[in-house]
Design a binder for these strands. Structure first.
Lengths: 153, 153
DNA sequence: GGTCGATAGATGCAAACGCATCTAAATCGG
DNA sequence: CCGATTTAGATGCGTTTGCATCTATCGACC
């Protein structure tokens, strides 16, 4: 396929985004269908995952909201569900009477790890054969740069 | 930031996917908030867009379903809504009594073009400043390669 | 040609979603 | 220090979503 992307900057950006988006859809399709997500919706897993990556273990609800593609109200109720299932804990934020802090329970951490292992295998099975290591590193670099630039403020 | 990605292939693939996914979330956040999507949800726009890109103008429902991250039933009802709004048309497929064909109406095409213009501007404003033209081309190439590899069969 | 599994799409239903709004706490300005 | 604005999160409500299932047609095979 010839590179027809020397057209206009606007067009190049649009095509780049569309390609990124379609790739995300294609991969996500496969991942969602995996048995790892019988127990937990992807958004729910994403919250557990994000909490597991947090150094202090605690995250504010609004911090979580930056990571996940959900409205504030939906995230609020999603966390409520996770709490009912005993996967996360809530505490009023000590320094801000409006806020709440969330962290994984032991059960939540276990479930995240278990699903995470399967999930990582699924990802590797999809992405590994598709791109060389060097290409993956470059894709990682570019998407990280894009995310950082878009997320300013 | 040092490249810690020379670890294992599995880990590299997982980090690459996570970075791609987060970038997608970050960009999508901004795009969804744009005034272009007051009139039409993103999934709905995506269907109109896909139809507008189709050479024959007609698409089967199941072909459409490959492009969009929606279940079959959700897409069925989404198209139903678009039809009620006069944006798409349905016809029984001539060669397959089970299938239906969908295409844009004139109103649908107009709306897609109108939103599309705004949308492309929004994308360019986000992606353009984030990556150089060469980087965008490389990102386009890598995501297209990934999508193609994942979509086989 | 008739039966049988597979495929396309529609539909009932409960769960999840976003928007608008509400309450309460923090921050700002005088 | 007090009223006004902003911010964090919860909640009512109508809409959208996915799962399971249903109907109808297609294709394969005997």
């Amino acid at each position: 396929m010839p590179a027809k992307t020397t057209e206009s900057p606007v067009r190049l950006a649009a095509e780049t985004w569309e390609s990124l988006f379609r790739a995300q859809v294609a991969v996500m399709r496969k991942l969602q269908a995996a048995p790892a997500f019988k127990a937990l919706a992807l958004n729910e897993y994403d919250v557990l995952f994000t909490l597991s990556r947090c150094p202090s273990g605690w995250l504010r609800l609004n911090e979580l909201n930056d990571k996940v593609l959900l409205s504030q109200s939906s995230l609020s109720r999603l966390v409520e569900r996770l709490e009912k299932r005993g996967l996360v804990e809530r505490t009023p934020a000590p320094e801000d009477g409006r806020g709440i802090l969330i962290r994984l329970t032991d059960a939540g951490r276990d479930l995240q790890k278990q699903i995470g292992r399967e999930h990582v295998r699924d990802i590797a099975a999809l992405v590994g054969p598709a791109l060389s290591a060097a290409e993956q590193q470059e894709l990682l670099r570019l998407t990280e740069k894009l995310r950082a630039a878009v997320s300013v403020r």
